[in-house]
Simulated scan of single mutants.
Amino acid sequence: MIPPQATKLFSTERTDVYRLTEHFSPAMEIFLKRNRENFTPFEPLRAEDYFSEAGIRQRITLSDLDHEARKSLLLVFTLKDSAEIIGSINFTNFIYGVFQAGHLGFSLDQEYEGKGFMYEALSSAMDYVRRQYGLHRIMANHLADNQRSKNTLAKLGFVQEGFARSYLKINGKWQDHVLNAYVFPEDE
């Protein structure tokens, strides 16, 4: 069941997209545990507490400060009219002034990969962030061998801008990343 306090921001043809709040902690725990093995090659090493409802609730509560300061927007999405989280979209590190940019991260339940759900939710989320936060640029980086992320970002219009050696410590080792960015058209 969707928490009654949930803030649905928008819907797409097949999904409902919500701001991630502490009310989603139980559903987020299920999502993370169900996909733990699938996400491991693409994420930092995680302590066991990362997957607990209490740990999730604590991270969400801390992230609320960044949201209130207009520095981030953390989203989750479900199938339309469902309570099961199938994906997350994180817009973080918002910088304003002359830069007007932020970073994007995303993950999708392995059962829904290859069906266009991430592209569908991300397309609308990008539009939402542009309208609500006035950003000019969104940056998204991925492991060099992560073809799914590469394809999703390319389909969204992201352009590869560089390559960073030993960029992030993923799954216990420093790994190279491809640097991408999407620049919103000036007339928007």
Rank of each mutant, 00 (worst) to 15 (best):
T7W: 00
T7F: 06
L9I: 09
S11P: 03
D16S: 14
L20E: 03
L20F: 08
T21C: 04
A27R: 03
M28W: 09
I30Y: 04
I30K: 09
K33G: 04
T40I: 01
F42T: 10
E43K: 02
E43H: 08
D49Y: 00
F51K: 00
E53G: 03
A54T: 10
R57I: 03
Q58R: 02
T61V: 09
D66T: 09
A69C: 11
S72F: 03
L74W: 11
L75R: 03
L79P: 02
K80G: 06
K80V: 09
D81E: 15
A83M: 05
E84M: 07
G87E: 11
I89G: 07
T92Y: 14
N93F: 13
G97H: 14
F99N: 10
F99P: 08
G102I: 12
H103M: 13
G105V: 10
G116W: 08
F117A: 05
Y119A: 05
Y119S: 05
Y119C: 04
E120T: 06
L122R: 06
A125W: 14
M126K: 10
M126W: 00
D127K: 13
V129C: 10
R131C: 08
R131N: 08
Y133V: 12
G134L: 07
H136M: 04
H136I: 04
N141S: 15
N141E: 15
H142F: 08
L143I: 12
D145E: 15
N146L: 07
Q147N: 13
K150M: 15
L153P: 02
L153T: 02
L156V: 04
Q160L: 08
G162I: 13
F163C: 06
I170L: 12
I170Q: 02
N171Y: 10
N171T: 03
D176L: 06
L179C: 14
N180W: 12
A181K: 07
F184R: 04
P185E: 13
P185T: 09
